Amino acid sequence: MAVAVGRVFLIQPCSSSSSSFICKGTCKHSLGITTTLWSAKPGTTRRCMSTVVRAQQRPTWLPGLDPPPYLDGKLAGDFGFDPLGLGEDPDSLKWYVQAELVHARFAMAGIAGILFTDLLRVTGINKLPVWYEAGAVKFDFANTTTLFIIQLLLMGFAETKRYMDFIAPGSQAKDGSFFGLEAALEGLEPGYPGGPLLNPLGLAKDIKNAHEWKLKEIKNGRLAMVAMLGIFVQASVTHVGPIDNLVEHLSNPWHKTIIQTLANSASSS
């Protein structure tokens, strides 16, 4: 009978008959098995206990936690995190992977844009509005309604192409599907377009085996999504941009922290 202790160690009692010797000690076997022998009298049963150490197959978001069976580690950035079971359905899992990729890329672009424009504003290089007021700015070359319609059409076209490539991989790379510019995009697989326009440095040409590049992208994208959430909360509490918050914190790091900021905001409200 085997008794499981925790998840990693397995204790296996065993016995064998011995009538000619007394044994005591510990012996190690291959595959991480350690056998401990206890002394016994001649003519009695020798008892031993084997401890089998099972190496974890892959890292998970919580060490020692078994990932769900449908997350087998093949996806980029798969650490077995799905507490709501959203990926149980294979078709839904494929869509969630694409959705995460798009949100991660938007978050990385958004973080870069916010920090860059906020740095120009704080240093006085350019009189730009703080990022959460940029949408209310009226431009001279076009009115807000026109810009909104143009953005809607451009993003709608790009998202439609992306969706069509998702439901029929490779369909958007056929001749005539993109005004003769298919070779410039050279779709590699759903979610990973390429070509000189979207992959000018020629990275990860063999996208099927580009596991390291995929992992780096999704890790940075997840970090950017968390950072974007932090910037939203920061702007809601302090009503200034992230560079202003950073400068204020650096002016007095021990007394101007997130704890003091939240406490002052709660007391003032």
Rank of each mutant, 00 (worst) to 15 (best):
M49K: 03
M49F: 10
S50Y: 00
V53S: 11
V53W: 09
Q56T: 14
Q57D: 10
Q57P: 00
R58H: 08
R58K: 07
L62Q: 14
L62M: 10
L62D: 10
L62I: 14
P63K: 10
L65C: 11
D66G: 01
D66A: 06
P67S: 05
P68M: 15
P69L: 07
Y70H: 15
D72Y: 12
G73K: 09
L75W: 09
G77L: 11
G80S: 07
F81H: 03
F81C: 07
L84E: 12
L84R: 11
G87K: 04
E88Q: 09
E88G: 12
D89W: 13
D91G: 02
S92T: 08
L93M: 04
W95L: 10
Y96V: 03
E100W: 10
V102W: 12
A104D: 04
A104L: 00
A104T: 00
M108C: 05
A109M: 08
A109F: 09
G110N: 03
A112R: 02
T123W: 02
G124E: 06
N126M: 14
N126H: 13
K127V: 05
P129H: 05
V137A: 14
K138T: 12
D140V: 11
F141G: 05
A142Y: 02
T144F: 12
T144E: 10
I150Y: 03
L154Y: 00
G156C: 08
G156L: 06
F157S: 01
A158K: 05
E159Y: 01
R162E: 00
M164C: 10
